[in-house]
Structures are given as C-alpha cells and as structure tokens.
Design a protein around this nucleic acid. Structure first.
Lengths: 339, 339
DNA sequence: CGTTCTACGTAGAACGGTGCACACGATTCC
DNA sequence: GGAATCGTGTGCACCGTTCTACGTAGAACG
C-alpha cells in the first residue's frame, strides 16, 4: 500500500529515488534506461516496476550533460508558409515511432535569429538538427555541422561534406512548369521570383530560375524574371502593380504559391479571366492551391516525403554515419485550371 | 559509434576555460553570467572580454540543473491553422527584447502527444510554458502548473488558480457575428461548430456556441448547431453534404475560418451566390479570409496581441507572481462581402 | 580442484554550470 | 581602537544523469 496522493508533486522523483525504491544502485537504473549491456531480466523487470509506480521520467537536461537527450531540433525559417506544416508532419511521421522527440525553433526570416536558435539547440545538447530552408551560407552550416549532426531541407549544396541535404529537384520542377505553359501555346512567359541575397546560390528560388531559363532557352525564347521582395504585407501591392503593367504578360510561372495564390486572386478580382487572360502555375502545391475558387496548377514537391527523408537521414547520421548523403526528389506537376 | 582518435570535444570552451583565461574563479564568471550581486565593474569587464575572445556560450543543459535556462516553451496543438503564426509572432515580439528565447512543440491534435511534449519541456528545465488551445482538461493543466509557470491561450477557465489564461471573449465574438447576420435580416441562421470532447467546457468552440445561442434567444429564434469533426481531409466532404441538405440554411456562422473559407469556396463552386444565397461569417480572420475571391467576414480576435499578452503574463509569473491572472480581450467584426 | 570466462552489478568520477557559506581587506561606528 | 558592516571574490557541495573501471559469483575448462 503506497502512500496515496501527493507523491508526484511532493518530492521530485529522480533516478536515485527509483534506485532506492527498487533496492538497486543508481548505475543499474541508468543501465535499464539506456538498454545498456549487462542487466538481467529480473533486474530490468524490478526497475521497470519502480519507474512505473513512481512515475519517473529522466531529466533531459541532466542526460544531455553526458549522454543523449533523444531530442532533435527543427529549425523553421518562418512559420507562415502553409507548405511547412507538411514537412514537419513528415518529420514527425518518422520520429514518432522512434525514441526521439522533436522541438522546433522559428527563425523569423532573420539570420541572426536563425544562428542563435541553432546555438540554443546545441546548448541544450540536442542530438541532431533538421534545418528547413535556412538563410545562412554553406560555410556557416559547415561550422555548426562539426558540432552536431545536421540534415538540411531546401538548401542546394550537393558538395557539402559535413551535413546531409534533402531537396526536391527545383530545376526540374521549374522546367516542368514552364514546359507546361509552353505546351499550352504560350510564348510570353514571365517568371515571378523572390529576391534573395547575392551570395545565396543554394537558394531554391535560384534553382527554379535556372530551370525556367533552361526551358525558355530550349524553346528559343527570351526569359524574363521579375524578382519581388517577400516581406509580408507589401506582396499584394507589388502583385497588383505587376498586373497593371502594359503589355501585361499572358502567362506567369511563380516561384511559390505564396505569390501565385494571391496573384490568381488579384487577377480575378481585377476582372481578368484565368487562364484565358492570364495563365498561372505556382510552386509547392500548398493547401490553398486546391481551394475551388483558386484552383491553381502547381508543382508538388512532396513536402511530407521531404520531411520524412530528412528525419531518416538524420537518424542514420546520428547513428554514426559520416559520409554525407545528398538526396534529390522528383517533383510533379498538379494540373488544375489556372494554367 | 564514436571514433576514438579525433575528439569531438576538441577545445570545447566551458566556464572553466573562461575562468582560467580571465584569471578568476569559476564562481566569479558564473556571477557575471547571472548578473548576480557582488561583482566589481573591473571584474565584470575582465570576464566579459574573455567571454568575447573565447566565444563562450553557457550550456543551457548544465544551467538547467540548478538555475534557469532562459527558455520558454510554446505548445502548439497543430501547426496547420494559419491563425497560429500570428500568435507565435506576438509571443516573440515580447520575448525577443528580453533575455528569454522560445522553443516550440507541436501537439498534432493528439492529447498524449501534447502531454508528452509538456513533460519534455519540463524535463529540459524550461522556465515557463505558453500553451495554445491545448486539448487537455484544466485538472491536468493544474498538475503541470504546479511544476512550471504556465500561461494558456484559448482555454476558458477563469477560476484556475495555478495558471494564467489569456483569451479572446469568444461568447462576445459569436454574439457579434450572429447579431450581424440578424441585422442583415436573416432568421434562418445555423452555427457550424466543431465536435469537441464532452468534458471540455473550456473549449473555445463551446464558448462560441453559447454566444450564438444567446443572440438567437434574444431575437426569439431557435438556434441550430451542427458539429463537425475536424480531422483534416474529410472537412470538404462534410461541408458539401451540409450544403446539399434541403432546405438549405440561408445564413451560417462558422466557429472557425478553417471551415468558413472552405464553405465559401464550395458554395461558390456549387453555383451559390454569397451572400445572396448563403451568408457566411467566420471566426479568426485568418489570412485567407482577406483573399479577394474569398472576402469572408470574420471575427478578429487579435492573435498577435493575444500572444504578446500571454508572453508578458508568463514573464511576470516567472518573476515570482503567484496570484492567477485571467485576461479577456474584446474581439471585433471585420466586415467583408460574405455576410 | 584451481584457473579462466562470462554475466551481472556497483562505486565513483565526470559533465558544466549554480548558489551558499565564508574569507578578507577596507570602512564606518561608537 | 576594537567591533560591526560592507563590498568582493573564492571554495565547494550540489543538480541528475552517464560511463568507465572494477568486484564478484557461478559456470566452464583443463
């Protein structure tokens, strides 16, 4: 008959409490916890029972000081993009059945915030990191990767030696989209891209620009890329301006649905028919593209699969692998009525 | 598996390294780090310089064992709702200039995941928690709140003694929405609500139902509430069914834009005119409501302000306050063309 | 029957900080 | 002029784990 009531809150239950309750040494309990070699079934059973009755949970903070924390950090650049939840779910699909948990940080599209978040995760002694479309350069990533296993999504750098990369083939995706517009008979195809820092050759937008240019070149047409800043509220304004120019382009390939969904909306609100007056193909196939009133054709890069693969890759790296893995996934075009 | 030769710990700079470099005791460095009492300007200066040149960062894991980690955990029920990013940004608005950082966990709409995430954050010795619309009951929250300061958003329980709550006045918001529909001459107003667990009187959906019923009652009309499960992909199907019933309601108040945006889309796709054939008012004023093609009237609860207030409240509680604070914010109606 | 294995369990030193108790010289007080 | 006070810095015992080295009993071996 155990003392009813306030045992959980009263005295903090540590590994020592468990050891005493089970009548064994602290080290023995630790061994059970870690599935370490050298514990008899009887001991394991005994300890497990004590853990159960006491409601013991090992302290991740203390664990981190010598061993693993069984936690991986996920760094999101910004949380607003509806494409990201898919990636996170993919990661958790893999992590959930494993012994690892995840904790996320939000970069707020600001590089100093990103780096400080990574450092914070390192300081918490997390076991590995998954970065999603980080702003920082490969050199910076390299430095961190020397301290902690890292898998990166949305950062093209297939020669990186210290970390793994998992990407959709953005060149191929852009090629697919542009070719679809070409096949529909369009020649006047503009790409709406995102302005990115000059030193970021790893950026997905840049890769998509290459794919677009390649398709145009193959068709013997001149490409035209319009770069827009992505800073929240000004986007609709810029898009409206874009549509008011004369002559207005007849077909647009958008680097992201973040722009494309708004573009279709604004175009229709201005009285333009989509796709008759303006054909649009976006990128990411985010949930909004599927809304009946939007019905946007888009490149699907399989966010969930991207996340799952990143998690698997990280897991294997945390398991001791040192040779870098660089994975490239085939995207696909989801045809809807917009273009 | 670890290679024996090249140590990863190659030149790890700890508080001891700093102490040696500055020619002072470890305790002195610790004092500087914590802004503790009893350090001269000369010492502080000296230590600071060493920290700078060595690039030292204190280990959050080690810190957590006795002191604070200067980290607050944010628990998100699910990451898909576009309303949540606003809340998170509000939190970070307040946290960024403070000495605290944040780390997020994702509940995946599954209660066991939520609780395990909270426990994980406790195990990391975080200093405080902000929970956004948690599924769990007040009793469970109470138990956790005894172990760590907690501020909760989107959980109505104004009598909770152990934790703070920050809410929008959901009854008032629903009243506003329903009265707007009544004022437009509608009498046949249905509320589309979310199915929630029977023991969750704290749920925002429940509060909104009360507000709706109140408005209908005041108008001398019978209310009708239709509850739908929110489990991802089945929503459009249910909404379509809802619109195919005869007689079809003329006006709908939706507990969330999560439903309302889809509802407007499906209705228009079915050839219904909004608002002439079907008036709709949603809740949350999420970014999609503002899309020109959707143009959904919605109740704005000021997510950013909600987040900011939660962070401030938590900060003050972590500072030693014990008396619970319960904050209720006035929502407002954002009129667009849908209803 | 003594010796070597093998399997199981334990003691105690890390890990990187915090925070209390205290030492110690310089003021201030009576 | 001795005691009390104050401002600064230090020593050391924690915090809750992991991990290495070692002890010990029983089995297998020659």
């Amino acid at each position: 008959m155990d003392d009813g009531g306030s045992r959980v809150t009263r005295g903090k239950v540590t590994i020592r409490t468990v050891a005493e309750h089970a009548g064994v040494s602290v080290a023995a309990v630790s061994k059970v916890l870690r599935n370490a070699y050298g514990v008899s079934d009887a001991l394991r059973q005994n300890v497990m029972e004590s853990i159960e009755t006491l409601g013991y949970r090992p302290s991740a903070a203390a664990r981190g000081m010598r061993g693993r924390t069984f936690t991986v950090g996920i760094l999101l650049v910004e949380i607003g993009n509806p494409f990201l939840p898919e990636v996170v779910e993919g990661i958790n699909d893999i992590l959930a059945p494993s012994e690892f948990k995840s904790l996320m940080g939000m970069g707020r599209s600001h590089m100093p915030v990103e780096t400080s978040l990574i450092e914070q995760m390192i300081d918490f002694h997390m076991d590995g990191l998954i970065l999603v479309a980080p702003r920082m350069s490969g050199a910076v990533l390299d430095r961190y990767a020397r301290q902690i296993p890292i898998a990166v999504i949305g950062h093209h750098e297939a020669t990186a030696a210290q970390f793994d990369t998992i990407n959709s083939d953005d060149q191929c995706g852009a090629l697919l989209a542009t070719e679809a517009l070409l096949a529909a008979g369009h020649r006047d195809i503009v790409m709406l891209s995102q302005a990115y820092a000059p030193d970021s050759s790893h950026a997905v937008a840049g890769q998509r620009e290459i794919g677009y240019q390649l398709a145009m070149q193959r068709a013997g047409l001149p490409g035209r890329i319009v770069a827009m800043p992505y800073d929240g509220d000004s986007v609709p304004h810029h898009l409206r301006q874009f549509l008011e120019q004369t002559p207005r382009p007849r077909a647009v390939f958008c680097w992201s649905d973040l722009f494309a969904v708004d573009l279709v909306n604004i175009a229709r609100a201005m009285g333009l028919r989509v796709p008759e007056d303006l054909a649009v193909i976006g990128y990411d196939n985010n949930p909004l593209a599927a809304l009946p009133l939007v019905d946007l054709s888009s490149i699907d890069q399989g966010g969930r699969r991207l996340g799952a693969l990143a998690a698997e890759t990280l897991l294997s790296r945390m398991d001791g692998r040192n040779a870098p893995h660089h994975i490239l996934l085939e995207p696909s075009l989801v045809r809807r009525t917009s273009g």
